[in-house]
Design a protein around this nucleic acid. Sequence first.
DNA 1: TGTAAATTGACCTTTAACGTAAGGTTGTCC
DNA 2: GGACAACCTTACGTTAAAGGTCAATTTACA
Lengths: 154, 154
Amino acid sequence: MVSERSYKIGELARMFGVTPRAIRYYEELGLLESEDRDGPEHRRYSERNAIRIKRIQQLKDYGLTLSEISELFELARRDRSGVAVRESLASKYRSRLEDARKRREALDAYIDDLSWHVEQLERVQDFFECPGASCAHCRWSERCDVRLLVSSGA
Amino acid sequence: MVSERSYKIGELARMFGVTPRAIRYYEELGLLESEDRDGPEHRRYSERNAIRIKRIQQLKDYGLTLSEISELFELARRDRSGVAVRESLASKYRSRLEDARKRREALDAYIDDLSWHVEQLERVQDFFECPGASCAHCRWSERCDVRLLVSSGA
DNA sequence: TGTAAATTGACCTTTAACGTAAGGTTGTCC
DNA sequence: GGACAACCTTACGTTAAAGGTCAATTTACA
């Protein structure tokens, strides 16, 4: 049986567009395992660990933190069937999804508000004639945007 | 002429739901001006400055940083007509708006992806039989989610 | 045997908007 | 005039993830 190909840290770094430091950091967190060394020899990583870097990047892109990724990997180590891992991952994803949907709602409202304000700010004359407390434009304040700004400069 | 009502720092803090420290900080940044004091007397803020706190909160909610708000106020101080301020504010808002729209696009894509993954993860059997490189589910990776996770745990 | 690449360890970075602690002072009410 | 809360200044601390950046060696490959 031919021994599997192994990678040096710099190779991996180039392959995945990260720095050696990052890879060492991943190992420090228990996300990767280099082959056993006695003393400060150069690290060697198996193909399996190379793939894991990709995996880490993917999960990171999906918003998991390194420590969550670490948990997942640990779970996978204990639960070889993959069931618990799958459930854990699905649960994390669902939670992220919920957050994301809330963020999107907030973002939509924000975009609406901001568009409205931009429109109003572009309508110069109207604004200058803002009647104050009774101003129809003043949705979110007792006085509208410009008026307040101007009056706050005195 | 009756002298205008003035506020103590703690009053303002209670009125706007902030801490005295925050108000002092705003003053330190030049966003507020307390009445002249000789020595370490208690600060007194005019009505105008009270309104400004509200204004600061509004602009903050719209995503401006304190330093941007500071710029705006400074601009308002120099440009009494309000034109430059209005343009500056509109420009900042537009820029925020553009950012927000980009964020929303990214967020939408993220939500799509995540939903897809959750669906797949909930379909247990399919996943366990993932054929690897040719797996139809594997949109973003050479191997699909669970398979990779399981294999990375060994 | 030269030198590029790797090693460990330890501290540093980013970032805004305050928080917190300490020790002293002021203002107001009774 | 005294109690006491509220206030003052100064100055450092917080948050926090994911590495960055020395610095002084050591290893590994050609």
